[in-house]
């Protein structure tokens, strides 16, 4: 469970988040949507303990978030950087050495599912396969919270689809909460439990997606058009 209470985050004088309150519960796949610069990545970094709030507090399973929260949070950055001298296999071993909850068997299972060659080097992989590798590394951890920052960005439809299928197959919704930022709404329309919309550092909507369809007969895209006006 993640809670943000009256969270403000300033970068010098600019407010990236402005008095945000948010409660996310376990067992759900949640999408965080909004334009570039709206505060999506900042929200994820605050939950991952990579940034500290200027005001307010962030808690994961009741625990106040510090850098040490990395023990319970798996964070996939939107950046695309690897140690170039490692193979895929070595990269996985390195992650296993860094996180005690890293599940090697699961990593190889996801690797196989994603049809990646363990002997290849990430720098020689296509962009799509590097995207797949990032998913392997984030989902192989047995942690209660998984944060994925723009996992679909710049990837072709085949790769996006394999990532969606990877999420369906390997997330344990009994125990895990997954928060995804994305612009690719169509990709996630059928897999999100909830959607949170953010604009200029404020949360402007938070909804159960099936309720939107049931009560208002609208999907996520229609809803976004409605609230972003």
């Amino acid at each position: 469970m993640i809670t943000l209470t009256n969270v403000t985050k300033k970068y010098s004088s600019k407010k990236a988040l402005d008095n945000v309150n948010l409660e996310l519960t376990v067992g759900k796949l949640i999408g965080l949507v909004g334009e570039n610069g709206s505060g999506k990545s900042t929200t994820l970094k605050l939950i991952a303990g990579l940034k500290h709030p200027t005001k307010g507090e962030v808690r994961v399973n009741g625990e106040l978030v510090t850098r040490r929260i990395a023990d319970s949070v798996s964070y996939l950055s939107e950046l695309d950087e690897y140690y170039s001298f490692f193979t895929v296999e070595k990269t996985i071993e390195f992650y296993a050495s860094q996180f005690k909850d890293f599940d090697l068997d699961k990593a190889y299972e996801i690797l196989k599912f994603m049809k990646l060659d363990p002997k290849s080097k990430p720098k020689h992989l296509s962009k799509g396969n590097r995207g797949r590798l990032k998913i392997v590394l984030s989902l192989a951890r047995n942690v209660p919270v998984i944060l994925l920052d723009e996992p679909f960005s710049g990837l072709d439809p085949m790769v996006r689809n394999s990532i969606v299928k990877g999420l369906i197959s390997f997330i344990d919704l009994e125990k895990q909460l997954v928060l995804i930022t994305t612009h690719e709404i169509r990709e996630v329309e059928s897999i999100l439990d909830e959607v949170v919309a953010i604009k200029d550092g404020s949360i402007i909507g938070h909804h159960n997606v099936e309720d939107l369809r049931e009560e208002k007969q609208i999907g996520i895209v229609d809803w976004m058009e409605e609230i972003y006006g």
């Binding site: 969606v164 329309e189 059928s190 369809r213 049931e214 007969q217 609208i218 999907g219």
Partner: peptide, 14 residues
């Protein structure tokens, strides 16, 4: 992919 379902009706019903 998501085209199997339309977005205006709950997917559990579809």
């Amino acid at each position: 992919m998501a085209d199997m379902f339309h977005s205006q009706k709950p997917i559990y019903q579809q």
